[in-house]
Design a protein around this nucleic acid. Structure first.
Length: 434
RNA sequence: GCGGGUGUAGCUCAGUUGGUUAGAGCGCCUGGUUGUGGUCUAGGAGGCCGUGGGUUCGAGACCCAUCACUCGCCCCA
């Protein structure tokens, strides 16, 4: 019986070419969020289990987290999400932090689930959060940041839409207009969440069943369907159109549009699975018909920091997973051809390993990333290795070069070869790199 | 947790109603002598056909079980 070379179920090995793609995405993410003043933080991959139990419920935690009892009998979990952790960190230093507080992180997260497309057991997720601002300006900025990331990755506006809704608005509908109790409105909310996955007639039947005959006579179900049909705030049912949540949404959309984000729309069916959202929620959807799915999203959750027994801190944020983002970039052909970090591959001709050391050191000191082939094989074999590594330049060093104090530098993509001194060689390679 | 699909060489896959020593392309290794790659060319290594049972004179093909991978559903961070 031999050992398996497969990575653990639902987790990925990142061979260098895979890691390059991930590094590219993270680089673009960092670039975009830092442009808005967000600072990177991190935290342990393990947290006390109750951190998640408090927020999501024991059952979900037992079924969907990797958890165990440590040697000190502590119940711990590998983090399935970052939001509880960052809320904990903010709560701990609540009084000494400077608000508005802008933080981001790219943690790897684990969830115990059956893997499927775009959804693995281990993934990385950019988390961006803005703490301490309760007004719509914060909601606007966080969506601008989400959009900026897409733009930094060269996505065009017709490749994605930003869909916006408000939990407060939905709550206004459920409680004030439709006078549903907590359980009923929760069920109806979950139904809306599944709306696009089911047959429309089936959806209508299920929704109708939520209302009593007398409520239907009063036209409450009609109000509900009218709500879902709205594509702008002005199309909302009369009773909702001018509530605070509606006017907030309208303002958010207006300012986003005036800041150049033309692909933002109101979508009353956006719910997000989580119960902790308190107001604005949004999702970024891929418009490609082949992959018309939610890529990532977020919203406002003003209650989480308060769970730690301190004054609540209003918060708005979002999470963006690496798997779905890579799917998006690949399907829209937005991933550039990525090269390794090595600038040149040194081919040693003959037994000159020792004599070549000073000149190799010079190349490195000049700022080049140099990989040396010390295998002692014939030059053709060494060149093949350079090609396989995907390195652009080969630099030949043999007795002749050492004697004449020159290098032979060859561009493997063109076959063009030059015999130059160290300084000139360095600038040839650097010119290509930039 | 429920349902579908697929397991044959390192990779992608063929393998005819069950019939001799199981194939291709790519990749890999060694040559085609001197310090230069992708081409060409000659050769070579590499498979208990996922695993365990069963049917049969005979199984990579058929049946059962099991495992793995995969795509959906449920759920969603």
């Amino acid at each position: 019986m031999s050992l398996s070379t497969q990575p653990y179920k639902g987790a990925r090995d990142f061979y260098p070419e895979d890691k390059r793609a991930q590094k590219y995405m993270f680089k673009m993410m960092r670039k975009a969020v830092e442009r808005f003043g967000y600072e990177e933080y991190d935290a342990p991959i393990i947290e006390p289990l109750e951190l998640y139990a408090a927020k999501s419920g024991q059952e979900i935690v037992d079924e969907q987290t990797y958890n165990f009892v440590d040697r000190g009998k502590r119940h711990v979990a590998i983090r399935p999400e970052m939001t509880p952790t960052v809320s904990r960190m903010v709560a701990a230093k609540r009084q000494e932090l400077a608000y508005p507080l802008r933080w981001y992180s790219i943690p790897n997260l684990w969830r115990y689930e059956r893997p499927q497309r775009g959804r693995l057991r281990e993934h990385w997720q950019l988390n961006v959060d803005l703490f301490g601002v309760s007004g719509v300006a914060a909601d606007i900025e966080i969506i601008q940041v989400a959009d900026a990331i897409m733009q930094t990755m060269n996505a065009k506006r017709d490749m994605y839409t930003i869909r916006l809704n408000s939990r407060k608005l939905v709550n206004e509908l459920m409680v004030t207009v439709l006078t549903l109790d907590k359980t009923e409105s929760y069920t109806l909310t979950k139904l809306i969440d599944r709306m696009h996955k089911m047959d429309y007639a089936e959806f209508v039947a299920s929704a109708d069943a939520m209302f009593s005959p007398s409520e239907r006579d009063a036209g409450k179900n009609d109000v509900f369907f009218a709500f879902l049909k709205a594509t702008t705030i002005d199309e909302l049912p009369e009773a909702l159109r001018s509530c605070q949540a509606a006017t907030d949404l309208k303002e958010i959309i207006r300012i986003l549009e005036s800041s150049g984000i033309s692909n933002v729309v109101f979508d009353p069916s956006i719910m997000r699975g989580f119960d902790y959202y308190t107001d604005t929620v949004f999702e970024v959807m891929d418009t490609d018909p082949e992959n018309n799915r939610s890529m990532f999203g977020g919203g406002r959750y003003d209650g989480l920091v308060g769970l730690f027994g301190v004054e609540p801190v209003p918060t708005v944020g979002f999470g963006m997973g690496d798997v779905t983002m890579q799917n998006f970039l690949e399907s829209h052909k937005l991933l550039p051809a990525l090269k390794p970090e090595s600038d040149a591959y040194v081919v040693l001709v003959g037994d000159v390993f020792e004599q070549a050391q000073p000149v190799i050191a010079k190349l490195r000191k000049a700022g080049l990333n140099i990989a040396v082939d010390m295998s002692g094989r014939k030059p053709d074999k060494q060149i093949k290795s350079a090609l396989k590594h995907g390195i652009q330049y080969v630099i030949f060093i043999g007795e002749n070069e050492l004697k004449d104090e020159v290098l032979v530098v060859k561009d493997l993509s063109t076959g063009h070869e030059e015999r130059r001194g160290v300084d000139r060689t360095v600038s040839i390679v650097k010119d290509y790199r930039t």
